[in-house]
């Protein structure tokens, strides 16, 4: 009976994962391996193709059939800050008015705003997923905030892995493939931001998790009882323990030949924390060096006093 409960939990989290995350690993791998027929992504490999691809990058305007209802809610909710508004507020839409910045610099920053806007939307998706974890919404509300604040970037980095291969990454819901070389060619510090994620993702992808495994692993990350400032750790640890059991069982059934997969996966959580710490430092550096840069208010909230 206990194993049945753990399998039911795995099924529940997988369903929530499919509900809230538009681009699954299965879809991303199909796109990356060219199994989607004529539906090939637009490739951004230099500044010219970046500018050509900008119309695709405005994620908020891309309708997603399977998530039409959520997309409608999202569009309605975009009375807040879109990447276009952020760029506008920072004077980036009129590139000639920016002293000390050429057109290329403005395009880089504008792309950065698109990333921020998509990240903010992804935070909303992760929040909905977290709320679907049985028992999460019963936790102290302050602790729910803390778990999300500390867990959400780790979750986003894990979710980036299926979109990446050694040559580049899918962005804009899989409609664009951006090459790793292009990202490395951006000016500092932009060029340094994605490389650690590629290195992590290429190694992480060798574990060959599927979407159902991912759903459980993301829940384990969110339910970390050692986040700073938690008020009531015990119920969080109890929830995490149940999800960990479910994950362990799932991996044994789904990957019988992969030795020590559970242990290897848990080890990744340590690597993740370092990547997040480095990422936050990059963002702090950007704030200092890019005088024209605006940080999305939701991301500001998350990163303030994080590490």
């Amino acid at each position: 009976p206990e194993a049945a409960d753990l399998r039911a939990l795995a099924r529940h989290l997988y369903e929530a994962y499919l509900k809230y995350f538009p681009l699954t690993k299965a879809k991303a791998r199909a796109i990356l391996s060219g199994k989607t027929g004529d539906n090939v992504p637009f490739v951004i490999h230099d500044m010219k193709s970046l500018m050509e691809g900008e119309q695709f990058i405005n994620c908020s305007q891309i309708p997603i059939q399977e998530h039409q209802q959520q997309a409608t809610v999202l569009t309605a909710g975009h009375g807040g800050i879109t990447e276009v508004q952020m760029a506008s507020e920072c004077g980036l839409l009129e590139t000639t008015s920016i002293s000390g910045h050429g057109l290329t610099d403005a395009v880089e920053l504008r792309f950065f705003y698109s990333c921020q806007s998509r990240s903010a939307e992804a935070v909303r998706e992760v929040t909905e997923f977290a709320k679907s974890i049985p028992g999460f919404t019963d936790l102290d509300l302050n602790d729910q905030v803390t778990l999300l604040k500390y867990g959400v970037i780790e979750v986003l980095i894990i979710m980036m892995a299926p979109l990446m291969n050694k040559d580049g990454t899918l962005i804009s819901y899989g409609q664009i493939f951006m090459t790793r070389e292009f990202l490395k060619s951006l000016r500092k510090p932009f060029c340094q931001m994605m490389e650690p994620k590629f290195e992590f993702s290429v190694k992480f992808n060798t574990l060959e998790l599927d979407d159902s495994d991912m759903a459980l692993f993301l829940a384990v990350i969110i339910l970390s009882g050692d986040r700073p400032g938690l008020l009531n750790v015990k119920p969080i640890e109890q929830l995490q323990e149940t999800v960990l059991h479910s994950l362990e069982l799932r991996l044994k059934l789904n990957h019988p030949d992969s030795l020590q997969l559970f242990a290897k996966l848990l080890q990744k959580m340590t690597d993740l924390r370092q990547i997040v710490t480095d990422h936050v430092h990059f963002m702090q550096l950007l704030k200092k060096t890019e005088v024209d840069m605006c940080l999305h208010p939701l991301l500001q909230e998350i990163m303030k006093d994080l590490y």
């Binding site: 809610v73 999202l74 309605a76 909710g77 975009h78 009375g79 807040g80 800050i81 806007s117 903010a120 939307e121 935070v123 909303r124 929040t127 709320k131 919404t137 509300l141 302050n142 729910q144 905030v145 803390t146 999300l148 604040k149 400032g229 999305h296 208010p297 939701l298 909230e301 998350i302 303030k304």
Partner: peptide, 21 residues
């Protein structure tokens, strides 16, 4: 904590209504 994280708090509280991102 809730005061410092108004948007996160809002995201956690609003299950279906749109949230300004």
């Amino acid at each position: 904590l809730k005061e410092k994280h108004k948007i996160l708090h809002q995201l956690l509280q609003n299950s279906t209504s749109p949230v300004d991102l």
